[in-house]
Design a protein around this nucleic acid. Structure first.
Lengths: 219, 219
DNA sequence: CTACTATTAGTACCAGCTCTTAATAGCAGA
DNA sequence: TCTGCTATTAAGAGCTGGTACTAATAGTAG
């Protein structure tokens, strides 16, 4: 333990006691035990992954080598690897979230007739507590499909009547099937049924407002 | 048009034609002119920002030094800086999307009675074409509030009857107000009205399934 | 023949590491 | 008190992917 140089060879009891209190003070204020430090290290890096070993060493008042040993023991990669992995997940996210214009992946589309999309329920879609998909994701898939099916410049949802018939869980694949039921001048009624392995999970009737570019209704 | 520097002031037709054939030949085989290469370099790095100078040098069959000169001229930062900036935007995204448990910010909550949340419509919520908020976001805010208002272990949406009364645009702040209308053994009916500056934009009646931990209905 | 561009090479230096060897302090048990 | 152990620190070589600078060379235009 980092004894200051002027104390390194001292052995008198008096001086030892002074050192003891000094150490206690240190622990209370700044220095932690190995376990504590490693726990904090893990959290610190998780929160601010861009921190260098040197900065960590300062933060915990230990040497850079100690930080490196700690990382080794906790198998925490070096700064550059951490940054890289953050950047990679970002790129993955961008690719995996073609949140662009349609929620879910459209696998069939007959404009103004019918459409099918699939959505794989992942961790980010579910309530953390019970792993049940949050309603609005299933709704979003259906609503999105109802928008996509409209063969017009503009398509907005005006009304919807929906029913969640059974909860969807993480890992399940929701297949949404949309069908145009009725079309009038400005409105199209689209029925969407969603299934998980042929079992109905969601049913919705969407009244869609079409075309005319700018409008006072829909969203 | 990308004329190399040594031709920039040239005006003779003859030389121009020679240049043309020269360029064609080169383009067919491998090496490109400086300008062409730099243009491609810029695109390549944009597409795959994780590429090193060495890999780029191989790709364009030039030396690493040439790539570095190119980057310098185009003011493209080094690999590590590129990765870092990608990673930084990722962290920003995560912070900007507290998709956690409630969509929108709850500003008032009386369990089993009433609740209010606000949601600021940003670029990521709207259709790119017309800047109108995609329906499911407004729905998500309302649905989320309906879930939050339920004073029970489990709350799932079973049915919903919704109406979008006017489109919401980017920059607008949606205030959702939820009120419990009716409560029976397992069901609670919540009415949610959303406004932008006191103007109604959305109205929904949510039938919520409560408690009993695991269930066959809802989502 | 000269001026100039484009390219390549080489050197020194840097951050932020890895991996290895070694020294030292403090403590517990025989 | 000596011995072994853990925790910490240090020192040194090597790596990657660069920056910054100097210099040499090939090719071309005028």
């Amino acid at each position: 333990m980092a004894l200051p140089a002027f104390l390194r060879t001292a052995s008198s009891l008096a001086i030892f006691l002074i050192y003891e209190t000094f150490v206690w003070k240190k622990e209370e204020t700044m220095k932690k035990s190995k376990k504590e430090r490693q726990e904090l290290l893990r959290e610190t890096i998780k929160l601010t992954p861009f921190i260098t070993d040197e900065e960590l060493a300062e933060k915990f008042s230990v040497s850079v080598q100690t930080i490196r040993l700690d990382r080794l023991e906790l198998s925490i990669p070096e700064l550059r690897e951490r940054i890289k992995s953050v950047a990679e997940t970002k790129l993955d996210d961008v690719k995996a979230l073609p949140l662009e214009e349609v929620i879910g992946e459209i696998i069939d589309l007959q404009l103004d007739e019918s459409a099918i999309s699939i959505l794989d329920i992942k961790e980010e879609h579910v309530f953390s507590r019970n792993k049940i998909a949050r309603g609005h994701h299933v709704f979003a898939q259906a609503n999105s499909l109802a928008v996509a099916i409209i063969n017009d410049e503009l398509a907005l949802t005006a009304k919807a009547n929906i029913r969640f018939s059974r909860p969807v869980r993480v890992g399940e694949r929701v297949v949404a099937k949309a069908k145009v039921k009725e079309t009038s001048q400005e409105r199209t009624i689209v029925e969407v049924n969603s299934y998980v392995e042929n079992e109905p999970v969601f049913k919705g009737e969407f009244t869609m407002y079409r075309s005319a570019q700018d409008t006072k209704e829909g969203s």
